[in-house]
């Protein structure tokens, strides 16, 4: 009854297998939950997730909204990219900013990255999720990002306070995902859990997925502060004594709020060049990763509090 081996035409490459797994997960969410939402950070992982969602429901439209937690300090190019995508692809975009944070004038220059992140990101996300009454929220996190993620489930349970309990996770077997929750509880869903950073880049290359131009090198106004290259994205930038913007060819490996995102000096202007740089850089530019991975530095702690 079984064939000796799989004929080549039926063989799926690792990216096609990862893609099929993600599509299966995304479809599962839509049927198991009453009100799912997809968190959209505008970064490359979000772009992949969005692309997979389009594939999952083709020829239909994406049947849930995309939620962007807007700290108001995102790169201008990110916001214009976001709006362009919403227009071109035709998804339902919800943007939320913490009104209390705005009222209090919270910003990354005066209030420190920790407070700022908590108020404008973690609290804002909780507000938006509560307001929407969402019982499932997709995220683009991957297990290879850092140690505490290596054990996180694809369907990751959150209590009423959006907290994650790493010691009490549901066993996840085969492709059966248990999405049962009581009222107020929710599930964070990570369809690209099994992807590595290289898989993501390779898939973007293969599928020609649009990404924010900031990932590509260009001459941009920057200042160097404590060894970190920060872009002067708009006139809200607070210069310290003696600081002056310089024009440098830089690009970003991860995108967030512009005052908190470190750039790398680079001349990579094509995807293959970016991938090449990433693969070669990991050996010698570990110090750069501290910035890249700033958000995940104490990820487990943040996740317990309800951040993604």
């Amino acid at each position: 009854m079984a064939t000796a081996t799989l004929p080549p035409e039926l063989r799926l490459t690792h990216l096609r297998q990862l893609e099929a797994e993600a599509i299966h997960i995304i479809r599962e969410v839509v049927t198991q939950f009453a009100k799912p939402v997809m968190l959209y950070s505008i970064g490359k992982d979000s772009s992949v997730l969005l692309h997979l969602a389009r594939k999952a429901f083709y020829p239909g439209k994406i049947p849930f909204p995309l939620l962007h937690v807007n700290t108001t300090w995102k790169f201008g190019e990110m916001i214009s990219f976001r709006d362009r995508m919403a227009e071109e692809i035709g998804f339902d975009l919800i943007s939320h900013t913490n009104p209390e944070g705005i009222a209090a004038g919270i910003n990354p220059f005066d209030h420190g990255s920790k407070n700022y992140t908590d108020i404008m990101k973690t609290q804002a996300l909780k507000q938006a999720l509560n307001a929407g009454g969402y019982d499932a929220a997709f995220g683009g996190a991957r297990r290879d990002e850092e140690k505490s993620r290596a054990k996180e489930r694809v369907f990751s349970f959150r209590d009423r306070n959006h907290r994650w309990d790493p010691k009490n996770q549901r066993p996840e077997l085969w492709n059966l995902y248990n999405g049962r929750v009581h009222k107020g509880e929710s599930i964070r869903v990570f369809p690209i859990s099994n992807w590595t950073e290289l898989d993501v880049w390779q898939y973007i290359h293969l599928e020609e997925i649009p990404i924010v131009p900031l990932y590509y090198s260009a001459v941009r106004p920057v200042v160097e502060r404590d060894g970190v290259i920060i872009m002067v994205d708009d006139d809200r930038f607070v210069f310290e004594d003696g600081e002056k913007p310089e024009m440098k060819s830089v690009r970003f490996r991860t995108l967030g709020c512009y005052p908190l995102s470190g750039a790398v000096e680079s001349t990579a202007t094509t995807l293959p060049e970016i991938i090449q740089e990433m693969l070669l850089a990991t050996r010698s530019e570990r110090e750069g990763r501290v910035i890249d991975y700033d958000e995940s530095g104490s990820m487990e702690e943040k996740k317990r509090q309800g951040y993604f």
Binding site: M1, A2, T3, A4, T5, L6, P7, L10, R11
Partner: peptide
């Protein structure tokens, strides 16, 4: 993939 069931 040897033994993958292609029949059923």
């Amino acid at each position: 993939e040897a033994g993958v069931d292609l029949e059923h």
